[in-house]
Amino acid sequence: MSASASPETQRPDAVTAETDPETQGGTPSIRRPVVPGLVVLGAEGAEACSDGSCW
């Protein structure tokens, strides 16, 4: 029995992902995000730490 949401109930802009059929009875494990991925909110360049550096 598949636990996947029907196309009708899925938000059009939601992240879609391939799921592992072995885990469909529970929480699907996401293998990879599919384009377009996350909708990015907020300005680019907000302060963050990356590549081991924060400065």
Binding site: A14, V39, A48
Partner: peptide, 18 residues
């Protein structure tokens, strides 16, 4: 690509200390 990285409902991403 850096942290903090916020994800809302696996739909919206917010990067950095906004």
């Amino acid at each position: 690509t850096g942290v903090p990285f916020f994800v809302l409902d696996r739909t919206y991403g917010v990067s950095g200390a906004q």
